[in-house]
Design a protein around this nucleic acid. Sequence first.
DNA 1: ATAATTTATTAGTCTATTCTAACTTTGTAG
DNA 2: CTACAAAGTTAGAATAGACTAATAAATTAT
Lengths: 219, 219
Amino acid sequence: MNSLTEENYLKALLALSTNSDEVSINDLAKHLDIKMPTVTSMMKKLASKKLVQYESYKPVKLTKKGKQEAAIIVRKHRLTEMFLVEKMGFGWEQVHDIAEQIEHIKSPPFFDKMDELLGFPKLDPHGSPIPDKTGKIVWKHYEKLSDCKKGDTLMLSAVLNSSADFLKFLNSRNLKLGTHIIIDAIEPFDGTMSVSIGKRKEILSGLVCEKLLVENITH
Amino acid sequence: MNSLTEENYLKALLALSTNSDEVSINDLAKHLDIKMPTVTSMMKKLASKKLVQYESYKPVKLTKKGKQEAAIIVRKHRLTEMFLVEKMGFGWEQVHDIAEQIEHIKSPPFFDKMDELLGFPKLDPHGSPIPDKTGKIVWKHYEKLSDCKKGDTLMLSAVLNSSADFLKFLNSRNLKLGTHIIIDAIEPFDGTMSVSIGKRKEILSGLVCEKLLVENITH
DNA sequence: ATAATTTATTAGTCTATTCTAACTTTGTAG
DNA sequence: CTACAAAGTTAGAATAGACTAATAAATTAT
Ligand SMILES: [Mn+2]
Ligand SMILES: [Mn+2]
Ligand SMILES: [Mn+2]
Ligand SMILES: [Mn+2]
């Protein structure tokens, strides 16, 4: 059984493996806000448990086993978020921090029951896929709003940042999953977009646009 | 903020304070299944946090502050058990172990929401009172079945043991909170009782009878 | 009032997780 | 191909929590 600490390392490794599946000690240290030597020694420990592949001075890689166990934590995190929103009435900006703790609860029946009560959801409240019980994760083919072009009509489908601050910002602009966005103009210098959300006109900074995943529904 | 470990010590102290409000290191060690020297050093730590009163070679006592913080953990534990039974469909024999973990979640809104969704319950699924937010705990005046006499008609109101084994035993005898019990005979030697539960006749050992709290409803 | 037993404390060790300081390796810019 | 910066490792120390062995205090039994 992995400790809470080990589980958080596994989850961070998975989160940082989206592109290359190789993760540097430095990135991991920054992501977890832990110093590099601490990370190095934890990598040795996880390697001894066959959860990562580790060699001195090289980036780390999750093994199949490590990937699977990380995905199970993510599953528990996302099921929890969905439960908090759908069954307990929390806002999507309130659930991440609670889920960060509940994901470590050891009780398969507890999460199975959530899953069942929710009707076996495929997505969490932020649009991210809920891994299945075997650890498989299937992302739909979304694109970043920042990669879309002027005139496109898009549907907000997922957010890449679940911090309360960011989500409260989206709330204040009436941006929810499913909301339609039309790109009126793009500032070439910094990627700031002028968009229409329903009847309202809004300005979204490049940084915000990079965190919004959309589906192109231009007619 | 107290650690999970400290919280479990506080809860044990409160549980063992029911009578005398003084707790011996030895009892605490047995209750927590931890060796005495470890308990001694934790008592020193809790004393430095003003949560217990500790002097060498004397029994420990929870301070007002310690009692309050312990009760808040118990509140979270019992709200959780109630939520698991009432809102998630678990049996009363399944919830204690999950609550033992969830009681340590740091999120007042999470437990407030449970409380609200449950309609501010006063009792948990095992008949124990749910402490209020200030830490006050009010037990109703129940008596132990083992203290009742032949001919009494009683209503099962609470159980003093929440282990899955014990509760599964009660399930198998159709004993639930609210069930009526009539004492047909008491074996003087060991306190074994012959009782009527509805139309059924059952035999309950003295040990079982001591764990059942009842309300006397003899006409 | 002793002796025996039980309870509690000290001292020293261990594992898990983290840190800082110092050193080494790798990668990059001339 | 050096020289410097960035990334990574080693060594040593700290804290939380738990253990064992040895010792001391308090209780109980004779
Ligand atoms: Mn989240
Ligand atoms: Mn976490
Ligand atoms: Mn319980
Ligand atoms: Mn607990």
